[in-house]
């Protein structure tokens, strides 16, 4: 961690997700390096920073989606419940089941709304017909979509508005019972109303889930996050230059890069 940051506040709760000396390289060039942080259960952990600093790359390294991008090399370690996710023999699919991901552009599958919710869950677990219906209602209710779509669960999901699609993606992740949800600028493609809905959801979900959210929007960061890490480019490589509780970073930034970023954002 950078010299100008105070060490992260120690709490007595064990971290659910931690990064230790994480580095991602592509074609011999480092994209991000020396990333260290801990996320506590129930925390909303924000990642902010300028475009191209490597926030999305960092996020993808946290559930090994980076493995699927040719040319990316990850070194260092990420631990979930204290267990290294890069240790040999890790069940990557089970990992991604526990650490879900929400993308910037919602990606719905071209099937019905209900099928979308069940898309992962029905393959990961054996579900009876009744359990399926229950799960669909549970997940859609959790993602605040139930009232809007309960009459048309069999309709194609692609007909939903973008905001609804994003909440459907969230429902899909909730249906596989993710513990940690990674969100990559989940509202930047959405209208203000859907954005507000998602933000409310985040605040509600943190009772049962842990969330790591990349956001471009400083006021959003202030509204939803508990802790913020700021990723900035130093010597051409992304680093976490400052990491502190939400207000400390936003109101009283220490680093030159962060001050500059916040003044433009």
């Amino acid at each position: 961690m950078s010299d100008c940051c105070p060490p992260p506040v120690a709490t007595d709760v064990a971290p659910i997700l931690e990064a230790r000396g994480l580095e991602v390289r592509a074609q011999g060039r480092a994209l991000i390096r020396e990333v260290n942080f801990s996320v506590r259960p129930g925390q909303v952990f924000g990642l902010i920073g300028p475009s191209g600093a490597g926030k999305s790359t960092l996020l993808r390294a946290l559930n090994r989606l980076a493995d699927l991008i040719p040319g990316l090399r990850v070194s260092g370690d990420v631990r979930l419940h204290g267990q290294s996710i890069y240790a040999p023999g890790t069940d990557v699919n089970a990992l991604r089941e526990k650490v879900g991901m929400l993308f910037q552009q919602p990606v719905v599958f071209p099937t019905s709304i209900a099928e979308n919710v069940l898309f992962g869950a029905k393959r990961l677990r054996r579900l009876s017909r009744g359990e399926r219906a229950e799960l669909v209602e549970f997940a859609l209710t959790e993602s605040a979509l139930w009232d809007e779509v309960k009459d048309r669960l069999k309709h194609p999901a692609t007909a939903l508005s973008v905001g609804q699609q994003q909440r459907l993606c969230l429902a899909r992740t909730l249906a596989v019972k993710s513990e940690v949800i990674l969100m990559d600028e989940p509202t930047s493609a959405l209208d203000p109303k859907s954005t507000q809905a998602i933000e409310e959801l985040i605040r509600r979900l943190k009772e049962r889930h842990t969330i790591v959210i990349v956001t471009h929007n400083v006021s959003q960061a202030r509204r939803v996050t508990d802790w913020i890490a700021c990723v900035c480019v130093r010597d051409g490589v992304g680093e976490i230059v400052e990491s502190a509780c939400c207000d400390a970073v936003l109101d009283n930034p220490q680093c030159r890069e962060v001050i500059e970023y916040l003044s433009h954002a």
Partner: peptide, 25 residues
């Protein structure tokens, strides 16, 4: 490929992604 990535993000295996995303679409 966004479709594939989303399916993998849910924890589906490579084969499941091929069979449930790529082939049907």
């Amino acid at each position: 490929s966004a479709q594939r990535r989303a399916a993998r993000g849910l924890g589906l295996t490579h084969a499941e992604t091929v069979l449930s995303i790529a082939l049907p679409q």
